[in-house]
């Protein structure tokens, strides 16, 4: 294949990565922005989304699209409920202390991973794509489902943006983000906002997990990479800034696609992790954030 089409393929693969990453990372950014909590278990919510999708797909008979549609609804809701429970039982009792919550979510990570290993097993299992469409370009054929993933992620992210800017719930969340004590003084139930935010963030990760599972299969250790990449995206985008997160997801996703295809996936990850460390050291507000 000539260089041009090869680059195009790399960019399209990168765009799929970017779309899934943007979903997962916006969940992490939301939780960090509103609650100032670094959720290390975020990748496990992603994994749970994929694993629950597999269970739903294997339980529901009938055409693949029906099972997939059911998974798209069930998995994020189930994971969001679990996250709400974790918030009430653990995070709230820690009073959202930044360092203690990191240790606690590391514990949560281990527990969820073990639960998935015990219940679901060590194998990687596929979920059928909801439809089987191949888009034939002059140089190569491309999976129509991957394009659907990009579109779906765009729609959901637009929805999140609308939620944050045009609804009362978004207003309340932003108010809590700016100053939780003042928000409380104005009669906002901060505990409920936190629980809702944590559940929403987890649900977004789970949704990303459901979308990716027809492409990569579900596996109990699949949460590691998205966690790392989401961290990278959220930090480069400026901690807690939704717009920066989207831009950073695009940059990281595309460059990951290109470097992975032309060099090696490991090299792409080394560069990304080093970039993050250096951004945090020299530009702690993120590449796109503004200093506050």
């Amino acid at each position: 294949m000539a260089f041009g089409p090869f680059l195009l393929l790399a960019l399209m693969e990168g765009l799929v990565t970017a779309a899934v990453l943007a979903l997962a990372a916006s969940g992490l950014a939301l939780v960090f922005g509103v609650m100032r909590v670094v959720n290390v278990a975020h990748g496990e919510f992603f994994m749970l989304g994929a694993v629950i999708a597999w269970f739903v797909a294997s339980l529901i008979p009938g055409p693949a699209w029906m099972a997939f549609a059911a998974a798209l609804v069930v998995a994020p809701l189930a994971v969001a409920a679990l996250a709400a429970l974790a918030d009430a039982l653990v995070l709230k009792r820690l009073n959202y202390d930044p360092e203690a919550t990191i240790v606690a979510t590391i514990g949560l990570l281990y527990m969820l991973q073990q639960a998935a290993l015990t219940v679901y097993g060590p194998d990687a299992r596929p979920v059928a794509a909801p439809f089987d469409l191949r888009l034939q370009l002059p140089w190569f054929g491309y999976s129509g489902y991957k394009l659907f993933v990009i579109a779906a992620a765009a729609v959901v992210l637009a929805g999140i943006w609308a939620l944050m800017t045009h609804t009362r719930a978004g207003l309340v969340m932003r108010a809590t983000q700016v100053d939780r004590d003042v928000a409380r003084a104005f009669g906002i139930d901060v505990d409920r906002v936190y629980m809702g935010t944590f559940a929403l963030g987890a649900g977004l990760a789970a949704l990303a997990g459901v979308l990716i599972v027809p492409i990569t299969q579900a596996h109990y250790l699949m949460g590691g990479d998205p966690l790392l990449l989401s961290f990278i995206v959220v930090i480069i985008g400026g901690l807690g800034s939704l717009r920066g997160t989207l831009v950073a997801a695009l940059v990281i996703g595309l460059s990951d696609g290109v470097i992975s295809m032309f060099f090696s996936p490991t090299l792409a990850k080394i560069l990304a992790t080093l970039l993050v460390a250096l951004v945090l050291v020299f530009r702690p507000q993120g590449l796109f954030g503004t200093r506050t």
Binding site: V38, P98, E99, I102, L228, F231, I232, I235, T266, K269, I270, T273, L274, V276, A277, L278, L280, V281, F282, P284
Partner: peptide, 24 residues
């Protein structure tokens, strides 16, 4: 490098350096 940051940033910077070392 990492000690230019503190708290949560310090945790993430050290995590990222360790991850880069592992990948290397």
């Amino acid at each position: 490098l990492a000690l230019r940051t503190a708290g949560v940033s310090f945790m993430i910077v050290t995590l990222m350096f360790a991850q880069a070392g592992y990948l290397t």
